[in-house]
Design a protein around this nucleic acid. Structure first.
Lengths: 132, 132
DNA sequence: CAGAATCCTTATCGATACTG
DNA sequence: CAGTATCGATAAGGATTCTG
């Protein structure tokens, strides 16, 4: 966590430095992740593309309440980060196919680890929330 | 992913259902996670508390640019979700100690898996971003 | 020390309309 | 089909002040 490559990001207690520097968090890879995935729709889109390639409107139809505006922004952002590929087929009318890049696919394993945690502990979280 | 307990959340392609339902994403545990950790400071605070218990102002000093307002909100939210414990010591002046709950600690492993991914692929992400 | 309360500025987001 | 452009509502966030 925190500093940069040397003191690598980790949530394992033992690996964290004693006095926390500060202001280094922008460079911290974990903060990077939060920026990568921290918005409302990104995880959802990734989960869909994990299954198979999708066309633009196909994604739009698949996620209710996701406006075209936000879908476009989400896809562009994923593309800019190298997680998603966008290929235009010059047919008439044109179709655009979105797929996960190898980098994007490499993210699926850590994400499913997190998903498993969420499933396993959904009850506890719910209980904590209900308790107030 | 998506539906609820039966079709459990997963980013493993094989486990996802073929035709995507929609509108079920609110109930999806992975979306839950995004809500849990998706804000600007939560991951940072968790990373600090992974190391040891912290006092309120200690956290405030440790994360530059984090206002007291946002720190309080972040801590309250973590508390409400059962990830963080808040214990008041009735000294003069009073001190308040924040620690991870067992549930919070159980989250550290999945998070460090994600952190490792971020470290391993930071270069690729940077390259993708630079390429535009 | 550990906050709550207020105000005010700025991102975020959705709805609508238009384009190649 | 696959977007872009513009606008207004709403929510997130920061600065400041006050309190037990």
């Amino acid at each position: 966590m925190f500093p940069t490559p040397a003191q690598a990001p980790s949530f394992a207690a033992a690996e964290l430095p004693a006095p926390v520097p500060s202001a280094d968090y922008q460079a911290c890879p974990v903060t990077e992740i939060a920026k990568l995935l921290g918005d409302k729709w990104t995880l959802l889109v990734i989960a869909l593309l994990a299954r198979r390639p999708y066309h633009y409107n196909e994604l739009h139809r698949s996620i209710e309440d996701l406006s075209r505006r936000m879908l476009t922004r989400t896809l562009r952002s994923l593309e800019a980060d190298g997680l998603v590929d966008r290929t235009v087929h010059p047919t008439i009318p044109p179709t655009v196919e979105y797929t996960l890049t190898p980098l994007g696919e490499s993210l699926l394993h850590p994400l499913s680890t997190l998903a498993d945690w969420a499933v396993d502990h959904a009850g506890e979280i719910g209980a904590a929330r209900a308790a107030r």
